[in-house]
Design a binder for these strands. Structure first.
Length: 556
RNA sequence: GCGCCUAUAGCUCAGGGGAUAGAGCGCUGGUCUCCGGAACCAGGUGCCCAGGUUCGAAUCCUGGUAGGCGCGCCA
């Protein structure tokens, strides 16, 4: 626990004791102490609404209650400089802030590990994201899911959860046959043979590229195979190629998965049959119109769902049930799925299926990322899956860059409909928020280069750090002290964008400080202390950006 | 028709029971003999509508309105 958190805990304990000592309520009825950092400086370093929370129980005026509590607080023990009762009954605490310099010592000692905590207590979480079908390249929407998913995983990991990143490969459904047919058509086309492009085929450029590659390596050999054999070959070949491309795109995007889980493997292992058998045994299936149905309405779904079609094949849902069952049987406490908004209608049936299998459906949490609209030159860029016209993730990385792309996606709440402004993201200017945060880091590195030339080094000697008494310095140290709690709260709320917000605010505080104070001065002790402060800021910016998947450059 | 998401400043978005609702962009003006001006400081109009719960609602509930996305024995 860092010094700031220690101070908050001590204060909370003092408040609890004071409430009881004042005889307002018994220990058992004590509400949780909520301690917040007020927006207004004039409202102190911390504030609690305890007195207002107690009005109903105590049946007294909140300001009176507040006065009674304040009277019993041991100011010295809690390191309090002043207490004020304000507004409807807030108790505002003004702390002795000299202890804040200890935050810098803490950061220095922890280095890259600063910010980590054990809030998650090693809870095992499986996060499944991206999971695009191996029928084409990753595009804009996948880039959002990947940025959010990976940042979330990093944050959960830093907060002490045991995280597994997983990609579900849909390599068994009809879409794979369609992929093979699409490549076949392009192959025939490339060889100048007669062909008909399948009606719902994939029209992306990647199908043409794969066909061309095949023509180079195989020539006309595939023509001699019988149709079934040829399509089987193309299916396998295409899958390998497309998956390799997906994996390499993600790697460029700085996302790496722990598990690539094949849907096909569920057929081979017999787990689909097992899952079906369990559902049948528990009595949640029935036959109708020649199909096998899941009675998902028994668990809050809109309608029942088909598991086995009239033709004997599975619907998409069936292997997916087996897959989620598999994840739970692997021992994960929680499953988090990140899905695009176009799949949100699927949540209810998946949860229903888990409930039917006897699992608590709340163990599955689905984060839905809303649609991304791309703007370029002030115009909406239209995309169409049918014609294969879409902005790919690769293009995005090339044109915008990984840092800006990931920052842009991570900085928004997943459930907001996002307007992605290409011009803004590309612009190497002060309009672009990603540079603002990175610049804080680069600027500090530059100061350190200057300091080194002059032979001045940072110092964490308490006597030197005690020189950091300016308000902006104390505020900065407090902000740095909040970093671990920010990570923990972003993890608990599954909200990576909160962390991005924090980093932006930290950068603002730093730039503001930097413009108001010189770091390298004639006062050697003060200079050394300020360098220690800058070291702390740089470390936190770097650690924070890393969680978002963004580099912290030393020069820009 | 039903379900999910969204509605906050001119634009893009934070805030999700608490004090005077914030930030970026854009606009206007200012700061620097000095460590990087991709910086800093100052300037302002706003919680879609109507009810309800509460000491207190932008936040929670109900009902509307508007936009997005779904609603297949496709995946």
């Amino acid at each position: 626990m860092n010094p700031l958190e220690q101070m908050k805990e001590t204060l909370k304990e003092q408040i609890r004791q004071a409430v009881v000592a004042a005889g307002i309520v018994g220990e058992g009825d004590l509400p949780e102490v909520i301690l917040e950092v007020p927006r207004e400086k004039a409202h102190g370093d911390f504030a609690t609404n305890m007195a207002m929370q107690l009005t109903r129980i105590a049946r007294r005026n909140p300001r009176e209650i507040a006065a009674a509590i304040v009277d019993k607080i041991d100011r010295q023990k809690a390191g309090i400089r002043d207490i004020q009762i304000a507004g409807p009954g807030f108790i505002n605490f003004f702390m002795d802030r000299s202890f804040l310099t200890r935050v810098l010592t803490e950061i220095r000692a922890a280095g890259e590990k600063y910010g980590r905590s054990d809030t998650g207590r090693g809870e095992k979480i499986n996060v499944e994201f991206t999971s695009a079908n191996p029928t084409g390249n990753l595009h804009l929407g996948h880039a959002r899911g990947a940025a959010v998913g990976d940042a979330l995983c990093n944050i959960l990991d830093a907060a002490g959860y045991d995280v597994t990143r997983e990609y579900y490969i849909n390599d068994a459904g009809n879409q794979m046959n369609m992929m093979a047919l699409s490549i076949e058509a392009r192959y025939l086309e490339g060889l100048g043979r007669e062909f008909t492009f399948p009606e719902d085929g994939y029209r992306g450029q990647e199908m043409i590229d794969i066909a061309r590659e095949l023509i180079r390596s195989e020539g006309e050999r595939l023509l001699s195979l019988d149709r079934e054999e040829r399509l089987a070959y193309l299916k396998e070949y295409g899958k390998k190629k497309l998956l390799a491309k997906i994996e390499s795109d993600l790697k460029k995007y700085r996302v790496e998965f722990d598990v690539w889980f094949s849907e096909l493997s569920l057929y081979e292992s017999g787990e689909i049959q097992e899952a079906l058998a369990e559902l049948k045994e528990k009595g949640y299936t029935y036959e109708q119109d020649g199909a096998l149905w899941l009675r998902s309405t028994a668990f809050g779904d809109d309608k029942d769902r088909v598991l086995i079609k009239k033709d004997g094949s599975y619907t998409y849902l069936t292997p997916d049930i087996a897959y989620h069952r598999n994840k739970l049987r692997r021992g994960f406490d929680r499953l988090i799925n990140i899905w695009g908004a176009d799949h949100h209608g699927y949540i209810a049936r998946m949860k229903a299926a888990l409930a039917a299998l006897g699992y608590d459906p709340d163990r599955l949490e689905v984060l839905v990322t809303q649609m991304v609209k791309l703007y370029q030159g002030g115009e909406l860029v239209k995309m169409s899956k049918r014609t294969g016209k879409a902005v790919t993730m690769e293009e995005l990385m090339e044109e915008v860059g990984v840092d800006a792309t990931r920052y842009f996606f991570a900085m928004r709440s997943p459930d907001t409909h996002l307007d992605f402004d290409m011009d803004l993201a590309v612009s190497q200017s002060n309009e672009n928020p990603v540079y603002y945060v990175q610049y804080a880091h680069a600027r500090i590195c530059s100061v350190f280069r200057q300091a080194e030339e002059k032979g001045i080094s940072p110092s964490w000697e308490p006597a030197h750090l005690a020189r950091l008494t300016a308000e902006q310095e104390l505020d900065l140290m407090q902000k740095l002290g909040e970093f671990p709690a920010e990570i923990a709260s972003a993890a608990q709320q599954l909200a990576p964008h909160r962390l991005v917000r924090y980093l932006f605010d930290l950068a603002t505080q730093f730039h503001s400080f930097y413009n108001a104070h010189r770091v390298i001065t004639d006062d050697a002790d003060l200079s050394r202390a300020r360098l220690a402060l800058l070291d702390g800021v740089a470390q936190v910016v770097k650690n924070g950006l890393k969680l978002v998947g963004v580099h912290a450059p030393e020069r820009m």
